[in-house]
């Protein structure tokens, strides 16, 4: 295993042996070491769940907030100090279930953050209930007769919302994953990377082998600038395409459009209240 500045050997990892999260952790640290070489400028943000524990195992700043609520603080951190690189890591339940509303609106907002969703198609931390991405028929102690809901399609939703970067990887394909992740973090704007991640304990359906068999790589015939084509790829479910589905650079970035940064790029922590303007307003109230 390559040693990176983000390694944190003291961390007491609470994932099950064989869990797909380990692979994600390894290549994420590699990628971060390359694209975010100053740990002082990187903040990991997560919600709650097994996936959301990832920041605990990285030597770096993190904000490990509430279940489903990673995106609002991630957006605010980026906006409060735009010089920071903000990467979100959370589970599919966290991001697409509890946090679904934030998922939609953060895409609309388009802050320059990267969102990595560990999609294991199950609730790990709470011991195996269905997640929004669980397949129809998937049996759990709660969905005892199998899931009867249509699975949530995060990529199709993101493309429908004209997200600025939409990709899917399978953590079992390390090189491909690293390549896509790197591009996601370097992309300016909201980047979604949905990661197929086997949960060896609670998901006996979507296994390493299943993901290998049920996926294929998008090749050069796919044009990531073509939104309609990207959407078409996103709704393929016989075999799931992997790679960058959609990327566009025209969409204005949230923090760049805020009037608070129009004339003044100072991060918020270095700002002082403009008391002269307060006086000017009070003066107006006297008229």
């Amino acid at each position: 295993m390559a040693k990176t500045i983000y390694d944190f050997p003291e961390a007491e990892i609470s994932w099950c042996p064989g869990c797909g999260n380990f692979g994600i952790l390894t290549f994420l640290k590699d990628v971060l070491a390359e694209v975010a070489p100053d740990p002082q400028k990187l903040v990991l943000v997560s919600g709650i769940g097994q996936a959301a524990k990832l920041p605990q195992y990285v030597k770096g700043h993190y904000f490990n907030g509430l279940h489903g609520r990673a995106l609002p603080p991630a957006t605010a951190i980026k906006v409060s100090n735009p010089s920071l690189t903000v990467v979100v890591t959370s589970g599919d339940g966290d991001m697409y279930g509890e946090g679904g509303n934030h998922f939609i609106h953060t895409i609309r907002r388009n802050p320059d953050i990267t969102v990595i969703v560990h999609n294991n198609m199950v609730y790990g931390l709470t011991k195996g209930q269905a997640s929004p991405t669980s397949s129809r028929g998937f049996k759990t102690p709660v969905q005892a007769n199998g899931v009867i809901l249509e699975p949530f399609n995060p990529l199709a939703v993101a493309i429908a919302l004209d997200a600025s970067f939409v990709a899917r990887i399978f953590m079992g394909f390390k090189d491909h994953s690293e390549e896509v992740l790197k591009k996601a973090i370097l992309h300016k704007g909201f980047s979604l990377v949905d990661v197929f991640q086997p949960c060896v304990t609670y998901n006996k359906l979507n296994t390493y082998q299943w993901f290998r068999e049920k996926t294929y790589f998008l090749d050069s015939s796919h044009d990531p600038k073509n939104r309609a084509q990207a959407f078409q790829k996103a709704i393929e479910t016989d075999k799931f395409p992997l790679g960058i589905f959609y990327q566009q650079t025209e969409k204005p970035v949230f923090e760049d459009q805020l009037v608070a940064y129009r004339d003044d790029k100072t991060p918020l922590f270095e700002r002082k209240p403009n008391l002269d303007r307060v006086q000017a307003i009070m003066h107006k109230l006297r008229q």
């Binding site: 609002p72 605010a76 980026k78 409060s80």
Partner: peptide, 13 residues
């Protein structure tokens, strides 16, 4: 979202 944004902002200064 509003409340969690507020907390993210304080965290970042």
């Amino acid at each position: 979202a509003a409340m969690n944004m507020g907390l993210g902002s304080w965290y970042a200064g």
